[in-house]
């Protein structure tokens, strides 16, 4: 069976004025044009009154171009840039809470944590909460490997955040 083709994705970084309703306007723009957002993160930036928003969405270069232009039209959006794996540092954080039935389970998860250099942030006789940091792919593979050993009770992911590699930056001039 041929492998199903993966839907192309792109990553957009915005610098936006921090007004109420801005996130709604940005997310609404994707929804209105029928584009699937796979991740959305936003919080304050280095400049007061401005937030940095990083989004991942499904679509090819044509979709990206339209989104790029539409984002630029939003009055609160000051900067729009695309980020690619070879020009950007990308990170995601996941918190994974797993069920631990016995010592065998615990040992299995601990050895996986070693390989992935995860931190255990909380532990009880029945659960273990693990902090995984890295690329989206790394988190995906940890999740699939740990599922082979134990049951995931809860999973929370931040979505990707990213900055340009090196001296390139997206800031207000």
């Amino acid at each position: 069976m041929a492998k199903a083709e993966k839907t192309p994705e792109f990553l957009v970084a915005l610098l936006v004025e921090d007004h109420p309703g801005v996130t709604m306007k940005i997310a609404g723009m994707f929804a209105r044009r029928g584009i699937n957002l796979t991740s959305f993160t936003g919080a304050s930036s280095e400049k007061k009154g401005f937030s940095r928003i990083i989004m991942k969405a499904e679509g090819d270069s044509k979709v990206f171009e339209q989104i790029y232009k539409q984002m630029n039209k939003l009055i609160e959006v000051v900067k729009v840039k695309t980020l690619l794996p070879d020009n950007a540092i990308m990170r995601e954080l996941a918190l994974v809470k797993v069920d631990i039935k016995d010592a065998i389970d615990r040992q299995a998860v601990i050895s996986l944590n070693d390989i992935f250099r995860n931190r255990v942030t909380n532990i009880t006789p029945k659960t273990m909460t693990i902090e995984v940091v890295g690329s989206t792919g790394k988190i995906d593979s940890f999740v699939s490997l740990v599922t082979e050993q134990v049951n995931i009770r809860e999973l929370a992911r931040t979505g990707t955040i990213a900055l340009y590699r090196g001296e390139d930056s997206i800031f207000m001039d």
Binding site: P20, G21, M24, K25, G28, R32, I75
Partner: peptide, 14 residues
């Protein structure tokens, strides 16, 4: 109205 006018205005303010 901020929500309701979002898709049909160039910009809106509260």
């Amino acid at each position: 109205l901020i929500g309701a006018t979002m898709a049909v205005t160039k910009h809106n303010y509260l």
